[in-house]
Write a protein that binds this DNA or RNA. Structure first.
Length: 469
RNA sequence: GGAGAGGUGGCAGAGCGGUUGAAUGCGCCAGACUUGAAAUCUGGUAUGGGCUUCGGCUCAUCGGGGGUUCGAAUCCCCCCCUCUCCGCCA
């Protein structure tokens, strides 16, 4: 949620921001509704103030009269009753007027709120303008010593690469057929060493965040209320991407949604709280199963482990003070943690500065990290894939957009301080999402004989095993 | 799944139709006393919104929403949540 006051002061900034993100939103309408609402509210409050004043003044009098009427009869009682009626008449008239205004506010407020939820956070000025992922800009790339990304896999390693699908089949790491039988398209079953490798990378990533970078380990719900989805900014725009747990139709109190990322659970932990400033920055890491409908992705990446409905992800989240420099510094750090991880695994990758059109509603800035997947992409003249970068991580910087919706604040100056509360800033980044990350691992660590070397960093999590096959 | 109890400020806990945005205690902040601290005393201490001549004024909020009433934390309805007992259960 953007700050309505800011929108009032500078509507153009939000209109332009929405345009850069290819989101259509009626800023003019919001301004008009907001102005009308405030006018009505002022009128309403004047009437209410008068009502309240009268109630205090008249109340005791009515009380006395009502007391005195007891035991009286006839004309005397009628006279007192008449006096009571006269006293109550004025507030009743005021009430009718204030209720009329109140009901007008009640009709325009839902529209205002609904429009407000649609306004995207304007991209930062240093984010390049662009339509979609095709306009993202490469910032940097890295490859381990001895591997030259400018050359083919074969030129680097001396043999033609197999795709992760071929490697999976060779070693029996995944069963797609049975996964589909069991759960439908884009489903899979990790088997044997495939499951061990999956677990190893998740544990390695999780442990690194906890023990090396000081993040607090968490386990959070993956079935959440709608408020958590709206609060974290995934709804209303991304509603189609989430699985609905239909409980209302079965007599349950409310429906729930399966989360597509641990970010929802981690950010929801402190919703509606005023955090102690000394507890900031909050640094959380979780590993959770992620569910995505992949609506609208029909026909895209249908084969293999790339685009699937259910996967597991280690996710990092930072909640910090409302300070742009601090936010930016954390963004860099959180990307740095991932670079360290990928380098320790020897996986080539590149950093992509996402353009405005690829940011989504909630981000001011986003950097994607893509790993090199030698078996991905079009086949060259000899029938071997040329290799391609594939997205494995996404680092978002959201300023206070998410925390405003979640109502997560702190009071500058510490617990005893006075003054306004301030909405926190939040950031998030993938640490490792598996099985997708298995694609570059399998493809980069394959050997000429078809076996796969296990990255040394993962061996402690695989009972010391050094290779598959 | 069955039966019951309950949701009040940072916490504990009163109030159950009228100067109650809310007693009291604890906590916290400031001041006094003190060489300093403790103890004691005094004062202060919710959140959000609107208006403002920036001195303030004002509205809403006692789980959420609606209703009754001149007036609701208090009465009525719906919803949400928590707890206890029984049953089932990884």
């Amino acid at each position: 949620m953007i700050d309505l006051k800011q929108l009032r002061d500078n509507p153009a900034r939000f209109a332009l921001g929405a345009k850069a993100k290819n989101v259509s939103v009626d800023v003019e309408r919001i301004i008009a509704l907001d102005a009308r609402k405030r006018t009505l509210q002022t009128e309403f409050e004047k009437l209410r103030a008068e009502q309240n004043r009268l109630a205090k003044e008249i109340g005791p009098q009515i009380g006395k009269l009502k007391g005195s009427i007891k035991g009286k009869h006839g004309a005397e009682a009628d006279a007192i009753q008449h006096e009571i009626d006269a006293l109550s008449a004025k507030p009743v008239a005021l009430k009718a007027a204030s209720q009329a205004i109140e009901s007008e506010i009640a009709t325009l407020d839902p529209e205002l709120q609904q429009l407000l939820l649609q306004v995207p956070l304007p991209p930062d000025p240093d984010v390049p303008i662009g339509k979609g992922s095709e306009d993202n800009i490469e910032i940097s790339r890295w490859a381990p010593p001895g591997y030259d990304l400018a050359k083919s896999f074969e030129a680097n390693r001396g043999f033609k690469p197999r795709t992760h699908l071929q490697l999976i089949e060779r070693h029996g790491l995944v069963s797609f057929e049975r996964g589909v039988k069991l759960a439908g398209t884009r489903s899979y079953i990790l088997t044997g060493a495939g499951m061990l490798l999956h677990n190893a990378i998740l544990r390695y990533a999780f442990d690194t965040m906890v023990h090396t970078h000081g993040f607090t380990p968490m386990s959070v719900p993956v079935i959440v209320r709608e408020e958590a989805m709206v609060g974290t900014g995934f709804f209303p725009a991304g509603r189609e991407q989430a699985y609905l747990v239909d409980e209302k139709n079965r007599g349950g109190s409310h429906d729930s949604f399966l989360t597509g990322t641990g970010e929802v659970g981690l950010m929801g932990v402190h919703m509606d709280e005023i955090l102690d400033e000394t507890s900031l920055p909050v640094r959380y890491v979780t590993v959770s199963t992620c569910f995505r409908r992949e609506a609208g992705a029909a026909g895209k990446d249908t084969a293999g482990l790339y685009r699937i409905h259910q996967f597991d992800k280690v996710e990092q989240v930072v909640i910090c003070r409302a300070d742009e420099n601090e936010s930016r510094a954390w963004h860099k750090k959180m990307i740095g943690f991932v670079e360290q991880l990928l380098q320790s695994l020897g996986l080539p990758y590149r950093l992509l500065q996402c353009c405005t059109g690829d940011l989504g509603v909630k981000n001011a800035d986003m950097v994607d990290i893509e790993c090199w997947m030698p078996g991905r992409g079009e086949a060259g003249p000899d029938g071997t894939p040329r290799g391609e970068f594939g997205e494995t991580h996404s680092a978002s910087r959201l300023y206070d957009f998410q925390c405003r919706r979640l109502n997560m604040r702190y009071r500058p100056g510490g617990a005893g301080a006075k003054g306004e509360t301030v909405v926190c800033h939040s950031l998030n980044n993938t640490v490792a999402a598996s099985p997708r990350i298995l694609i570059p691992i399998l493809e980069m660590y394959q050997n000429a004989d078809g076996s796969i070397t296990i990255p040394s960093a993962l061996r402690p999590y695989m009972n010391g095993a050094e290779r598959i096959g």
